[in-house]
C-alpha cells in the first residue's frame, strides 16, 4: 500500500504523448500541435512559452477537449490524466473531469463570463456540477471562494453581474470558479495578458498562493519570460506547434540551447522599455498552411541556420540530463539512421 502511494507520487499527473491537433482548412488538415509530448507532475508548475500563433492555446484546449467542433480535432496521440486517456473519453466522462479535476482559466476575462447570469450563479454552477450539495450551501461556498481570491464584499458581489466588475475582478472570479472543486491541475492560458501591470502581479501572486495551498499543478501559458522566471518549475518552449526546448526554469535561463529560446531571452523587455514582448525576433510564425513539411520550422528565421536545417527534421532529445532540445546544432537531435521519424 505504502509502496503504491509512493509510486503514484512520482507518476505524472498529466502525460501527453505524440499529440497532434489539426485544423481543417479547405478540406485539408493542418497540424497546429505537431507531435507534442510532455509530462506534468503533481504540484508542478509548467510554463509554456512561445510567440503568438505557435499553438499554445490549441495545446491547452486539446487537453481540456474544448477545441472548436467541426473545424479542429485531435488526429493522434494520447493525453493521460491520472492514467486515463482523455482523448478516448465520451462527452459525459470528460464533463465529470472538467471543472473538477482539471480546470482552466482564459486570456479574456471580459468575455469569459456569461453576461446575463450573476457571479453567484456561475460560481455555484461548477459546484453543483460536481458536488452533492444544496443550492444554499453552494451559495455559501461561492461567497467563501470569492473571499478566498481576494474580493472584498463577496456577499454583495455574488449577486452582481459580470459587467459590474473590472477586468481584474473578473479574472479573480474566473480563478475562484476554476479552483472551486480543488482541481489537481489548473491550465491558465495567458491569465494576465489582458490586465494592466499592477493587476497582473496581484493575479500571479494569487495563483502562486493557491497553488501551494491546494497542492495543485499548473500549466501556465504565457508570452512573458519574466512571468516564467517568477512562477514555473519547468518550461516548455514551443515554436510552430512543436516543442523546441524543455528543461527546468534555472537551466533555461542560465543555459538556453535552442537559438529560438536565446532570441526569446533577448527579447525580454527592460523595465523602462515598451512592453512589446517578443516582437524583436525578425519575421513571424508561419501560418498553418505555409508550414514547412520537413526540416526545422524555425530555420527561415534562425541566425544559425545551416543548409541541412531545411530538409532534416530535428528530433526533441535530451542533450544534457533533464534538458531536451530539438536543433541540429546538437548531435542528439539528428534523426538516427533506421529510426522511424516521428
Amino acid at each position: 500500500m505504502s509502496k503504491l502511494t509512493h509510486a503514484s507520487k512520482k507518476a505524472p499527473l498529466l502525460e501527453v504523448n505524440h499529440l497532434e491537433t489539426a485544423f481543417k482548412i479547405d478540406r485539408e488538415y493542418y497540424n497546429a500541435v505537431d507531435n507534442v509530448s510532455f509530462t506534468v507532475k503533481p504540484r508542478q508548475v509548467v510554463g509554456i512559452v512561445g510567440e503568438s500563433g505557435c499553438g499554445k492555446s490549441v495545446l491547452s484546449l486539446s487537453v481540456m477537449r474544448l477545441l472548436p467542433k467541426g473545424i479542429s480535432e485531435i488526429r493522434s496521440g494520447e493525453i493521460l490524466f491520472d492514467g486515463k486517456d482523455l482523448v478516448k473519453m465520451s462527452e459525459n466522462e470528460i464533463n465529470n473531469i472538467r471543472g473538477k479535476d482539471i480546470a482552466m482559466i482564459f486570456q479574456e476575462p471580459m468575455t469569459s463570463l456569461n453576461p446575463v447570469f450573476t457571479i453567484g450563479y456561475q460560481l455555484q454552477e461548477v459546484l453543483l456540477n460536481h458536488m452533492e450539495i444544496s443550492k444554499k450551501e453552494a451559495r455559501q461556498k461561492s461567497i467563501e471562494l470569492l473571499k478566498g481570491v481576494g474580493i472584498s464584499r463577496p456577499d454583495k458581489i455574488v449577486d452582481e453581474y459580470p459587467h459590474q466588475l473590472s477586468g481584474g475582478m473578473r479574472q479573480r472570479v474566473m480563478i475562484a470558479m476554476a479552483i472551486a472543486c480543488q482541481p489537481k491541475l489548473l491550465i491558465a492560458d495567458e491569465p494576465t495578458t489582458a490586465l494592466d501591470v499592477t493587476v497582473q502581479a496581484q493575479i500571479l501572486e494569487l495563483l502562486k498562493e493557491i497553488q501551494s495551498a491546494n497542492d495543485m499543478a499548473i500549466i501556465l501559458i504565457t508570452h512573458d519570460l519574466g512571468v516564467v522566471a517568477e512562477m514555473c518549475d519547468d518550461v516548455i518552449v514551443m515554436y510552430a506547434g512543436k516543442i523546441v526546448e524543455r528543461t527546468d526554469v534555472d537551466t533555461l535561463f542560465y543555459n538556453p540551447k535552442h537559438p529560438y529560446t536565446k532570441l526569446l531571452m533577448g527579447a525580454i523587455p527592460k523595465m523602462d522599455e515598451d512592453r512589446e514582448v517578443l516582437e524583436s525576433i525578425k519575421g513571424i510564425v508561419p501560418s498553418l498552411k505555409n508550414m514547412p513539411k520537413v526540416g526545422c520550422k524555425f530555420a527561415a528565421r534562425c541566425p544559425h541556420a545551416m543548409p541541412e536545417c531545411s530538409f532534416v527534421t530535428p528530433q526533441l532529445a535530451e542533450t544534457e540530463q533533464g534538458h531536451e532540445v530539438a536543433c541540429l546544432l546538437y548531435e542528439t537531435s539528428r534523426p538516427k539512421e533506421g529510426m522511424n521519424v516521428q
Binding site: 474544448l66 464533463n95 453576461p115 456561475q122 456540477n129
Partner: peptide, 23 residues
C-alpha cells in the same frame, strides 16, 4: 467565450444550450 467557460466547468451540452445560450 462564455460557452467555452461553461464547458470548462463540466456543464452538460443540453444545459449550455437550454440555459446559457438560450437566456
Amino acid at each position: 467565450d462564455y460557452v467555452r467557460t461553461a464547458r470548462a466547468k463540466g456543464t452538460s451540452e443540453s444545459k449550455i444550450y437550454n440555459v446559457h445560450i438560450f437566456r
